[in-house]
């Protein structure tokens, strides 16, 4: 039996289909989840994909946070279920306070869409076990509200506890403090990042690399071995 990984669709979500495909390419079963539905259909993990849920009204992720599906996701995440937030999904996770900090508009105010080099800083999360700490990967990045911010105390805590999961390499694309591209919660089951691993899982499309596939194989191994 393989693992069942839920992929949430909010109104305005864009990358749910690509995320479902990435889950299947990794060998798991993709289970579509609907924002109005509290039922998580007994999935083993959840991905919050990218897009512009609720049109990014108020703040990116601010309204999605209060959707029925998120009530269940928050409850399960606190109980240890693996949750990955990609781009808008990362914004939702900071709005729920499952992850600390917040996202601001990019410091240059432009939307960016390009391939971005990252360093995987932690291989101790549910979503990064198939990488090695220090490994460099390259996956697409596309957003306008991608500037990660938090107060100094929070940043120091994240660094000290090894919770900076990914850092931008070569260039900081948006002014994120300490080049942070993604972080994890203390337990390592909740991970959020701005770049898009789900767009880099097959050689034919996207960046032509499969550097993002490890996110999905990591969680699958964890769930199957559990």
């Amino acid at each position: 039996m393989t693992a069942r990984i839920g992929v949430v669709t909010f109104p305005g979500t864009l990358d749910d289909r690509d995320t479902q495909r990435a889950v299947r390419v990794a060998g798991a079963e993709a289970v579509p989840l609907w924002h109005k539905d509290k039922d998580l259909k007994q999935v083993d993990a959840v991905v919050l994909p990218g897009g512009f849920s609720y049109g990014d009204y108020l703040r990116a992720g601010a309204i999605s946070r209060f959707s029925p599906v998120m009530e269940s996701v928050i409850e399960q995440a606190k109980a240890g279920m693996p949750v990955l937030g990609i781009c808008n999904g990362f914004q939702v996770l900071t709005e729920t306070h499952l992850l600390p900090g917040a996202m601001l508009r990019n410091n240059h105010l432009h939307f960016i869409c390009r391939e971005q080099k990252l360093r995987v800083e932690s291989d101790r999360t549910a979503w990064t076990a198939d990488y090695t700490a220090g490994q460099e990967i390259s996956i697409p990045l596309k957003n306008i509200d991608g500037q990660y911010t938090a107060d100094e105390r929070t940043l120091d805590m994240l660094e000290a506890e090894g919770r900076v999961a990914f850092r931008y390499l070569d260039t900081n694309p948006n002014g994120s403090l300490r080049d942070i591209a993604g972080i994890t919660n203390e337990a390592g089951n909740v991970v959020g990042l701005m770049p898009h691993p789900e767009h880099a899982v097959e050689p034919l499309v996207g960046t032509g690399r499969t550097d993002g596939l490890g996110f999905f194989t990591s969680v699958l191994k964890k769930l199957v071995n559990a």
Binding site: L104, R105, N106, N107, H108, L109, Q147, T149, D151, G175
Partner: peptide
């Protein structure tokens, strides 16, 4: 935005 938070839109 809090005073210590960068406001790129205000700056523009």
């Amino acid at each position: 935005l809090k005073p210590e938070i960068l406001d790129p839109q205000g700056q523009a």
